[in-house]
Amino acid sequence: MNIFRLAGDMTHLASVLVLLLKIHTIKSCAGISLKTQELYALVFATRYLDIFTDFISLYNTTMKLIFLGSSFSIVWYIRNHKIVSRSYDKSQDTFRHYFLIIPCLLLALLVNEKFTFKEVMWAFSIYLEAVAILPQLVLLQRTRNIDNLTGQYVFLLGAYRALYILNWIYRYFTETHYVHWITWVSGLVQTLLYADFFYYYFESWKNNKKLQLPA
């Protein structure tokens, strides 16, 4: 563990807590894409298949349980909670996210570290996470006034993978044979997808203006 990866995990945890805070306290999911939340639940479900077979550390297992539990409960909240589900705008959240799943699955079958079920599922989860934010970014472009919690949620979610890139650079230089092209390329693509969001987020913070993404 290094400071970049710890900061990345804490930033990721913070993004989940901000979203849970928004949904649980103000009982609203306005501006949140259910499709991105569903994709993330699928990402964790396929990535943490080893949660009961490979024990790495208490920290690792605890964080996996937190991410699994929070992602599935957020999906449940938005779908089934009588008050929260009312603030979900189905007509705006139209990205066909199933179109993301198939290519990621095919790519995982072709490019993986080992052709076993667990490894293919793991590679699938890495590829899927890289594009999981797309429905949310599309929804943000359609959302007139993005509330602060939603903006902070997306910012933290993007920042965590950027910190992971620093972690990979650090590990490359400090550990022998530490090379993981699948996570490196996917993590870079994932972070680049946030580039324009980061720009507008920073601009709105600098000029103290409401966050607005151009349509």
Partner: peptide, 10 residues
Amino acid sequence: NSTKDVKDEL
């Protein structure tokens, strides 16, 4: 030595 390449990252 084939240290099982355990995925230690989240």
